[in-house]
Design a protein around this nucleic acid. Sequence first.
DNA 1: GAGTTTGAAACT
DNA 2: CAGTTTCAAACTC
Length: 779
Amino acid sequence: MDVVSPELNSSLPDEIMDTEAMAMEEDPPAETPAPSSHSAAEPAQVPMETEVPEIVSLCPATAPTQKTEALTTLTATDSALCGVSAGTQLVVTSSSSSGPKMATGTAAVTAAQPGSPVVGQSVAKLSAPFAPTSPANHQLIINKVAADGKSPAAALLKQEGQKLLVTGLSKTGQPIVLALPNTWSKPATSQGAGADAKTQPTQFKVVSAGTKPITKKTPVSTAGPMITKLIITKALNNKGLTSQATVTPVVTGRVLAQSTPVTPPRTITIGETISTTPQSLSSSASSNSKVAISPLKSPSKVTVAAQPPNSPQKPMAVPLNVALGQQILTVQQTASTSPAKAGSSQSTAQTVKPVQTVAVGGVNTSQFKTIIPLATPPNVQQIQVPGSRFHYVRLVTATTGNTAQTANACTTTNPTTIQPAKPMVMNTAAVRMSVPIVPAQTVKQVVPKPMTSAAQVVSSSQTQQRLIMPAAPLPQIQPNLTNLPPGTVLAPAPGSGNMGYAVLPAQYVTQLQQSTFVTLASSSGFSAPSSIQTQARLPLNGLSPSEATSRPRKPCNCTKSQCLKLYCDCFANGEFCNNCNCVNCFNNLDHESDRLKAIKACLDRNPVAFKPKIGKGKEGESERRHSKGCNCKKSGCLKNYCECYEAKIMCSSICKCVGCKNFEESPERKTLMHLADAAEVRVQQQTAAKTKLSSQISDLLTRTTPAISSGGGKLPYTFVTKEVAEATCDCLLEQARKAERYNQPQAVAERLILEEFGHCLRRIISSAAKAKTDCSINC
DNA sequence: GAGTTTGAAACT
DNA sequence: CAGTTTCAAACTC
C-alpha cells in the first residue's frame, strides 16, 4: 500500500506524527523474525519518544507471500504499552480458538496465524502462532507476554491494571476491537500454544469483522519517524468463518497491509469481551483502570473507542455515500446493538464496517484521537487529535477489488440501506490522507445542518451521508497540515496517482461522527451516548467542552471577504459556511481551489492561524488564556469586542490592551459578571418555568382530554358541557328572578347569583370527578 | 434594522 | 515591526 510520502508525514501534525511515528523501517517484513522467535525474551528495540510513553506497535511484518491491503490501524500511546514495547515482545496471535483457552497474563500479544511472519522488530512484535481453531470463533487473542516473564513492561501493566480498548475497522471494513481488561494483573490460565505457553499473559481478545480478500499488495510505508504510539494493524482471515486469522504485515507507521478473504465482521477484544466492559467507551476517559493510548502524556490511561462488531440481529446500517471527484463511494456503517455478540465469532454479520473509530483518550477525557476509516475505498479515518481544534480525516485508498467487495458486503448486510453509488476507482496505491477537517466544537451531538451546497455533504437522513469532493484535481498545495483547516485537498503522495488529501468540512465529520458514534453506541453495549459526547467535547477556544458543544455555530455575514479570510468565523474555525448569510461565499467545496489558496495564504501569514487562540497559560497563571493577547483600547476589555472577554477569560500579561478592566479584582468585571450571572439565572429560570408550564399544560391536556362519546360530543371529563352551561344559566336566572320577585336590592341579587354559581361549580366539579372515577374503573 | 463602534486581520 | 486599511462582529439606537 502506498503511504504518505515522508514529506507529508513530516508536515503532519504532531499528534498524527506520533501515531505514525512507529514506522518500523528497521525491519522489513521479509526480515521479520518468526513468531516463535518473537515470543522469546528478546526485547524489541523500541524507540522511545519523549514524555509520551513508549508506544507499542503491533505491526506484524508482512509475509512475503502475502498480498495484503492496509487494514485497520490502531494507534495508541500508552505508558503501559510503551513499557511493553520497550521491554517486551508483543506477539499477536489470532486464533479462532475460544478465548478461555487462551493463555493470559503475559505481556505478549500474539496473533494467531500459523506460519505468518510476525512483528516488526522495532517494537512489539506480532506473531501468529495460533492453531487455527474453530472458525466460528473468530477471536484474535493478543497476549502480552514478557519475554522472560519479568519484563518491566509486563509488570507495569499488571501494576496498573489498565484496560485497553481498541476498536477499529480493518481496511476492508472489518471492525476490530482490542480490549485490554482492567484485570491485567490477574493471571490467567497459561496458554498452551506458542512460546508464550510459559507465561501467563493477560488475554487480549481480538474479534474482528471478516476481512475481504485483498488482491493487491500494497507497499508498506516505512517512512517517518518511529511512532510513539501503538499501531496495531491486522488483517483477519475469516473466510467462511473458518479461515484462520492472518496477521499480516504491518505497517510501520501508518498503514497496514494485509490480505484476507472477506468474512463477517470481527471484533477484537483484548482481555475481555466487549460485553464485559460495557463501560469502556463511556467511561473510558475517566476510568483509571484503563490504559490510555494517547498521543499526549497520559501514561496511565488508554482509551480507545471501539468499533462495535456488526450484529446480524440488530444491525444499524449507515450507508455513507462519498463522492470523491466525480465518483461516489458508498460506505455503510453497521452497528450492533448486542454487545454480547461482539466477542463471538458469530459476529458474523456479513456486513462490513466501513467506519472505524479509534479514540485515544487522554487523562480526564479531554484528549482523544479518533480514527474513523471508511470501509470503502478510500478509507476515511477520522482522527480527532487532542488539543487540536480540527479533526483529521485520514483517507486511505483501497484497491478496486476491495471496493467492489465492500459494496457487496454492504449490500449483503443491509440491502435496504445501500445507496446506489459508483465505486470509486482508486489507484492501487493506497494513499493516506491526514488533514484537519473539523474544529472540535463541531463534533457535537447536534443535528448537523443541511448542506446548502450540492458539492457538500448531503445528509438525507441519519443513516445516509454523502461526501462529494471536487472532481477536478486540486492544486498541488501542501500547506502546513498541522494548522490546516478543513476543506483542504493535499497533493497526492508519490505513486498515489490522482489521489490527494481531501479535507472534509466540519459538517461532514459531524455527520460522519454521529453516525459512527451511533453505530458504536448501539453495538457493543457501551453507553455510547456518553462516550460519544465525551469524545466530541474538546476544548475550543477556551470554551469548555460543554459550552462548545452546546453552542451552535453562528452563521457569518461576510460580504467582502468571500469567507476566505480569517474575518470569517466559519473559515477561521475551519468550517465550511453553512446556512450563513454571507455574500459571494467561497468557503465551500465549490470553490475548493480558492479555499485552499486562502488557507495557504493564511498559514503563510500565520502558521498557527487555525489553532485555537485560547490555550493554556504559563504555569501559575490562569488555566486558559489568549495565545496572543488582546489589543483593546476602548472597550476596557469588558465587551465582546475583546477576545479575552468573549472567551470568558481574563486578560493576561501578554495582552496589550489599554485601560483593561478584565482582571480578577476589577470591580467593573465583577459587576458585569454578576449581571451576566443574574441574567443567565433569569434566563434559566424562565426556561425552566416555560418548560414546567408546558409540561403541566401537556399533562393537563393529556389527563383531561375527553374521549368523544358516541352521543354527540359529550365528554366524560369536560367540566362544562353545553347542557351544564345551560342548566347553570337557568339556575342563575332563577336566582335573579327570585331576587326580583322579592324586590331584593341589586347587591343581594348579585350575591344570590354568585352563590348559586358557586353551588353550580361545585356540583359540576363533583360530577366530573365522579365521572372520571367511574371511567377509570370501567376502563 | 440601520448605523456606529470596535478590534482583529490584512495590507503596506 | 509599525502604521494603516479592511472587515465583520458587537453594539447602540
